[in-house]
Design a protein around this nucleic acid. Structure first.
Length: 630
RNA sequence: GGCUAUGUAGCUCAGUUGGUUAGAGCACACGACUCAUAAUCGUGGUGUCGGCGGUUCAAAUCCGCCCAUAGCCA
């Protein structure tokens, strides 16, 4: 059995900036790619930008730029940077204006033409510029195509047509024989429904004098290729141009949004058939991301989530995890910052990150920071551990990604329970029970190793960090199906940063709540208002310069029962060392913010004199760290 | 109007081919514990399983009709 996996995420239309929907799709695709790699598949993962067409020509014109300059900017400055930040692990990024793609499209066109599946015909009808296609009167609502801003125009055009209708019976047959082809099944039904009636032939060219922005038709330089025919072929051109088409293509999965089902489920299979190429293996159709209130997201509604803001606030891993854990592939799902905070705090910080902290501390304290010998493989926790990969694999294959993650988290919770029940801190008090203690701690490390791999496809950076904090490296999924692979004698690093720092829950300001807020006359606030501010004495444990900002210091504060990190703009007035050991006043319940890449969990009180010199506020006499200030 | 999917605890969702008192996570309350990121663990639900009817010894699960939501098609 050859373990090969080829996957594409839809190539993005380069006429506007990326939004959460683009990000969501790439995260799904990235999960599947990473998971298959971990599971030993020779994997190739591709996405890119779709850069031709009338709409792009118009967007470029509006921006006052040449089309090529415009798409260069959108692809290189908008899409690719955010995907890199998101750690989307694509192996190739295909742009449809690249020479390698253009060449391939022309080759395929030639093939289809030679097969006799392309003819020339004149057509007159209503044309929607917004949707770049001819429309029927029936489709219009109030004279306008739903989704368009302008009514369609009457247009007469001679175009090349692809004999798509000819392949309809074949496609219906194929879909019936391959029920797993389009998933989830609702979309398969939808496609079968579409195919019950004639689908007509597909116009695949545009006259060059009207739409010059496209790939020339090889046998007629007065026409360019219709953008869909061009774009779909990117999935193949990426492979062909790298000389690896034969190897990967038969194993192709496409990940797409439900809005582009028809081109992928109807145009694309018939095109492939005509070109003599095999059909893809699977079409994975996802739904859309909705606002928290379940309504559509949109700039005009003002409820759109900016993926950059999300990344700045929560980091790559929390965004991946929350999007995968709290959506159900195929259906539309509401999403918002509240969900990320909740998942980050509950699953990642409390359950997973804290488990790492507790086992690390105990290993350092009780075992000299050295991993003891493997514990028996017949314990319940060991048996569940080695069975985890199998369960997760089934869920992933069924595309129930949220359940796959929940399964892994359940195992993490069972590890926490195991620690509570085994009470290693009690075992540590009795030297005679050393072996028992070592078995308990080894079991937890091994369990964390297994869980980290099961979660790795959703935690692109933190899964590795977690293992690194235990002195462990990388493992395949198969290597989690054997107990005891964490090597005895592994040294546990002395220092490891908190894996997932917790964030304070966002107060969720609704417009209604703001409206109800009592208006303070002449700038005065009530006692209740002031009581909202939690001030505490904090002792500076550590203080250093912010690596990326001259004016900022990063302080680690002891607040009595915990420590936290605060970024403060006082570098001009205080040398880092001079603050260590000092007691300051901290605004403890300030919403955390990320300043130049470092999270600040609060604010230090300071005052300013007439000359603009800043002085920090300290208690006059000694107060213990954590003491409340009122 | 037709087709498809969904409708289970306050919220998000599991419930394999019909079979014992319908489950999990979150949130909330109380308790235990101290290795840990105010963490973890335990305990706590009178849920009309959208409604009505049917098949069956037995239905959240099968069938019919209806209602609601979403999508597709017209």
């Amino acid at each position: 059995m050859s373990k090969i996996f080829y996957e594409t995420a839809a190539i993005d239309y380069a006429n506007a900036a990326p939004h959460i929907g683009h990000v969501y799709e790439k995260i799904i695709a990235d999960f599947l790619a990473r998971f298959h790699r971990l599971d030993g598949y020779d994997t190739n993962f591709v996405t890119g930008t779709d850069e031709h067409g009338e709409k792009i020509a118009r967007a470029a014109k509006n921006a006052g730029q040449e089309p090529q300059k415009f798409v260069d900017y959108v692809s290189e400055e908008l899409f690719q940077p955010i995907y890199r930040r998101l750690e989307i692990s694509y192996d190739d990024y295909i742009r449809t204006t690249s020479p390698r793609h253009r060449k391939y499209v022309q080759e395929v066109l030639k093939k289809v033409y030679d097969a006799g599946d392309i003819y020339y015909a004149e057509y007159e009808g209503l044309y929607s510029v917004g949707s770049e296609r001819f429309v029927t009167e029936k489709e219009l609502v109030g004279g306008v195509l739903p989704g368009d801003s302008e009514p369609p125009i009457l247009r007469k055009e001679a175009n090349y047509f692809f004999r798509m209708e000819k392949y309809r019976p074949w496609l219906v047959e194929y879909l019936k024989e391959h029920p797993e082809l389009i998933q989830p099944v609702a979309y398969r039904n939808e496609v079968l429904e579409m195919l019950k009636e004639p689908i007509g032939d597909l116009s695949i060219s545009r006259p060059k004098d009207r739409v010059p922005w496209g790939i020339p038709i090889p046998w007629d330089d007065q026409h360019v290729t219709y953008v869909w025919f061009d774009a779909l072929l990117a999935y193949a051109s990426s492979l062909a141009s790298r000389g690896i088409f034969e190897k990967y293509w038969p194993h192709a999965w496409h990940v797409i949004g439900k809005d582009i089902l028809k081109p992928h489920a109807v145009f694309w299979p018939t095109m492939l058939k005509s070109a003599g190429l095999p059909l893809y293996k699977r079409l994975v159709v996802h739904g859309h991301i909705l606002a928290m209130d379940g309504r559509k997201m949109g700039k005009s509604l003002g409820n759109a989530i900016d993926p950059v803001v999300l990344l700045d606030k929560f980091g790559v891993d929390a965004v991946h995890y929350a999007l995968l854990r709290d959506t159900s592939l195929g259906s539309d799902s509401p999403f918002g910052e509240e969900i990320v905070v909740q998942r980050l705090n509950a699953d990642l910080a409390n359950d997973l990150g804290n488990l790492l902290s507790r086992v690390r501390t105990m290993l350092l304290k009780y075992c000299g920071g050295v991993l003891p010998a493997p514990s028996p493989a017949d314990s319940e926790i060991a048996r569940h551990g080695v069975a985890l990969a199998g369960k997760v694999r089934v869920y992933v294959d069924e595309l129930k990604l949220h359940l796959a993650l929940e399964e892994a988290l359940q195992y993490v919770r069972s590890l926490n329970k195991f620690v509570n029940d085994a009470k290693p801190w009690e075992l540590a008090r009795d030297p005679a029970r050393l072996k028992e203690l070592e078995d308990v701690l080894y079991t937890v490390v091994e369990g964390l190793r297994i869980a980290s791999v099961a979660l790795e496809a959703a935690l692109p950076t933190k899964a590795k960090e977690l293992r690194a904090a235990l002195g462990l490296g990388g493992f395949t999924l198969a290597q989690t199906e054997t107990w005891g692979l964490s090597p005895q004698g592994t040294r546990i690093p002395q220092e490891a940063p908190i894996l997932f720092p917790k964030l304070e829950a966002k107060p969720a300001p609704t417009p209604e709540a703001e409206a109800l807020e009592p208006q303070a006359p002449n700038g005065l606030i009530t006692l209740e208002d002031f009581a909202k501010v939690e001030l505490r004495v904090a002792e500076v444990v550590k203080c250093e310069k912010h690596p990326k900002a001259d004016k900022l210091l990063v302080l680690t504060l002891n607040v009595g029962d915990h420590t936290r990190q605060v970024v403060s703009g006082i570098a001009q007035w205080y040398a880092p060392q001079s603050l260590v050991g000092r007691k300051l006043v901290l605004v403890a319940n300030l919403k955390p913010a990320v300043l130049r890449g470092i999270e600040s969990q609060g604010m230090i009180l300071a005052g300013e004199d007439a000359a603009g010199n800043v002085v920090v506020v300290s208690p006059e006499k000694d107060l213990p760290p954590g003491a409340k200030v009122r």
